[in-house]
């Protein structure tokens, strides 16, 4: 049997099965190292149990009692869920808007210019008075 500190600790706590306990006891009879370890563990437990039990200071108990009870473990999932929902909404709206944005229409300057020239040419005004409007046969903008 190999050395096993875990089994020794369980052995001290009385948590081993009968078969395990027999194996540990058999090993201890021949292994000085485990005997020493078992003795140290037993001594340490005895020392802890020998420590006096002290009352908790009143400033600690009063502070705990007067503080609001925080439930971070319960709130955190809600906050994350809200944030995730908001992010999802923004993504959906943004994507839908991007998809929904219609492409710009293309118009030539000549087309725009004619919407001004033709009606203006019919209202009876002569060139000169309306030279700046109707006396434009071509566009000043290169296309």
């Amino acid at each position: 049997m190999s050395h096993s500190g875990e089994l020794l600790s369980a052995y001290l706590d009385g948590e081993l099965t009968k078969a395990e306990e027999l194996n540990v006891v058999g090993h201890l009879e021949t292994c000085t190292r485990c005997q020493t370890e078992l003795g140290d563990s037993h001594e340490a437990r005895a020392m802890v149990r020998a420590l006096p039990i002290l009352d908790m200071p009143t400033w600690v108990t009063s502070g705990v009692a007067s503080s609001p009870v925080e439930l971070p473990v319960r709130r955190r999932p809600l906050a994350w869920a809200a944030a995730a929902a908001a992010a999802a909404f923004v993504l959906v709206v943004g994507f839908a808007t991007f998809v929904a944005t219609p492409p710009a229409i293309e118009i030539t300057f000549t087309e725009i210019s004619n919407t001004l020239r033709l009606p203006a040419s019919q209202d009876g005004l002569p060139p000169g008075a309306r030279a700046v409007v109707i006396a434009r046969s071509s566009d000043g903008i290169a296309e």
């Binding site: 300057f109 725009i112 209202d123």
Partner: peptide
């Protein structure tokens, strides 16, 4: 107006202008 826009010809008898309105952005060539 062009590309299905709505065009309005405005005048005060001296000066004139046209307004084109569409439901989309307008790119003017050139």
């Amino acid at each position: 107006g062009p590309a299905g826009s709505v065009a309005g010809f405005y005048s005060d008898g001296i000066f004139s202008f046209t307004v084109l309105a569409t439901d989309r952005a307008i790119n003017i060539a050139g």
